[in-house]
């Protein structure tokens, strides 16, 4: 078996309770993961899909989908719950994006991510709580550039970067979500990092500025 981090005791306990038919456990389970799911979506809001897809919609759809397929999951237990949830989210997100793109025949695919502070709670959060006011500006600036560069990446690059760097998934876990070999996941990550570096350089971010 791949090196997958098992679900936490709490999650396992909740899953057990759900198996016994206690709905409030499912509730707690979702509650535990809601913010995390939301963040996962928020991260992706800075890319080309922009605010076209509403984070809470994705989270809600994911939760409903989870609810629908929970029985099946409990029977098969193909992977840790956390990963399964992650996977479900990814699928929903893809589907919703596709739906949006199809709905509006506007060429979303070619739109470049716009830096838009008002619709980017993640970065606000990042900028909003900071130990040293003097560092605020520099970090804001860096954050802005990083965000812009991440937004310019190809979707597959951005995705793996977010998973590894932002979410801190292991390669085994990424491999599971993307349905590839862990080694390939690792390679892709390295490639994505390089591309990010190139973009950062293009944007004028030099070492001296750090």
């Amino acid at each position: 078996m791949l090196d997958l981090k098992p679900d936490s005791e709490e999650t396992s306990r909740l899953l057990e309770r759900i198996e016994k038919g206690q709905l409030d456990a499912f509730d707690s389970l979702l509650a535990r993961h809601r913010d995390w799911l939301r963040r996962l979506v928020e991260m992706r809001r800075d890319g080309r899909l922009q605010a076209r897809v509403d984070a809470s919609d994705v989270v809600q759809e994911t939760q409903m989908e989870t609810y629908r397929r929970l029985d099946d999951f409990l029977v098969r237990r193909p992977m840790p719950f956390r990963l399964w949830l992650r996977k479900t989210l990814q699928e929903r997100l893809k589907m919703m994006q596709r739906r949006h793109i199809e709905a509006s025949r506007r060429a979303v695919g070619r739109e470049v991510g716009q830096p838009d502070n008002s619709t980017s709670p993640m970065w606000q959060q990042l900028a909003g709580i900071d130990p040293s006011p003097s560092q605020n500006f520099a970090r804001d600036e860096l954050a802005r550039r990083v965000r812009d560069s991440v937004a310019k990446l190809e979707e597959t690059d951005r995705e793996i970067l977010l998973m590894r760097t932002f979410e801190g998934l292991s390669y085994a876990e990424i491999a599971f979500v993307l349905e590839v070999e862990p080694a390939a996941a690792r390679k892709r990550h390295g490639r994505a990092l390089l591309r990010l570096h190139n973009l950062l350089t293009e944007s004028g971010l030099t070492e001296s500025q750090l």
Binding site: F166, G168, H197, E207
Partner: peptide, 20 residues
């Protein structure tokens, strides 16, 4: 080295968001 100098601070910014 050159790559890491540019990249690691960016990685830290991204990573830090979770680690706040």
């Amino acid at each position: 080295a050159g790559i890491l100098r540019g990249l690691l601070p960016a990685v830290r910014v991204m990573h830090r968001n979770d680690a706040q």
